[in-house]
């Protein structure tokens, strides 16, 4: 084994330690709820907590709504920009990157000011209206990831030729999108969807300031009131993210329409 190879392995091992050590520490700590022995008590407490189930269910439903909203906004936009307005691509890319530099607190205060009970569109006046605002906020936060995922998917197919082929067979824009373009970028959309899911599950600021029972505020509440349960919650959340990544890989492999 030469020196270069040893160096590569050393960097790899250091990286693994850097990433895994905190996780192992968190996992180990989450198992110490019972004095002197390892147990799953903290996990049991978390899973049995009705608030955990309610907030998780709420966030999962909201993440599905966010993904639908995101796909409805991003997929036609990215498709249209690629097909008809390629010159606008840098502008659209810049706009989709804005949520990375504008803090969520700005977005949520903007929402509260624009859609409060004394405004023309008083969305914050009802639970459903606030839920919609929350989904819109999440869709904005996930825009950089969703747009890039969809755009990468579109880059991998011959958008213009496939669109024209479908049109020459009598398909209108809706049919082209629904039956030709979206199925061929399904894996890319799924990647974006799971990234969105990960953002929605952990997001705190917008949900807390709109006062909605989401998983993010629940994790913060748990962190400030319990000892071992937050660690268990962190491991569960981490597990969910990994499971999402696994599903992306699995689906990517099963829906491969090209050689190789």
């Amino acid at each position: 084994m030469n020196l270069k190879r040893i160096g590569s392995w050393a960097i790899f091992i250091l990286a693994v330690i850097y990433f895994l050590l905190p996780l192992v520490g968190t996992l180990e700590f989450s198992l110490r709820a019972r004095r002197g022995v390892y147990s799953l008590d903290a996990y049991r407490n978390v899973l049995d907590d009705p608030q955990f189930q309610q907030t998780l269910a709420y966030s999962v439903i909201l993440s599905i709504a966010t993904v639908i909203l995101g796909v409805l906004i991003v997929a036609p936009t990215a498709f249209w920009v690629r097909l008809k307005m390629p010159r606008l691509r840098p502008v659209v890319e810049f706009i989709t990157l804005l949520p990375l530099v504008i803090p969520p607190i700005i977005i949520v205060f903007g929402y509260i000011r624009l859609f409060n009970t004394s405004s023309i569109l008083p969305l914050t006046g009802s639970a459903r209206g606030t839920d919609f605002l929350l989904a819109a906020g999440y869709a904005t936060l996930s825009l950089p990831y969703m747009y890039r995922a969809v755009d990468t998917g579109l880059r991998a197919i011959e958008v213009q030729t496939l669109t024209e082929a479908a049109q020459s067979l009598g398909a209108g824009w809706a049919t082209v999108l629904a039956r030709v373009i979206l199925p061929n970028i399904a894996v890319a959309i799924l990647s974006g969807a799971f990234l969105t899911f990960a953002i929605v599950i952990g997001e705190y600021v917008i949900a807390a300031l709109l006062n909605r029972p989401a998983f993010g505020p629940y994790m913060v509440w748990m962190g400030s009131n319990r000892a071992y349960e937050p660690a268990a919650l962190a491991v569960i959340a981490f597990g969910m993210t990994w499971a999402s990544m696994g599903v992306i890989q699995l689906l990517a492999r099963r829906t491969r329409f090209t050689k190789g």
Binding site: E158, L162, A165, S168, N184, F257
Partner: peptide, 11 residues
């Protein structure tokens, strides 16, 4: 229309 690059729907 028949295209140079076939343009078959891959899915």
């Amino acid at each position: 229309m028949v295209f140079q690059s076939y343009a078959l729907f891959p899915n």
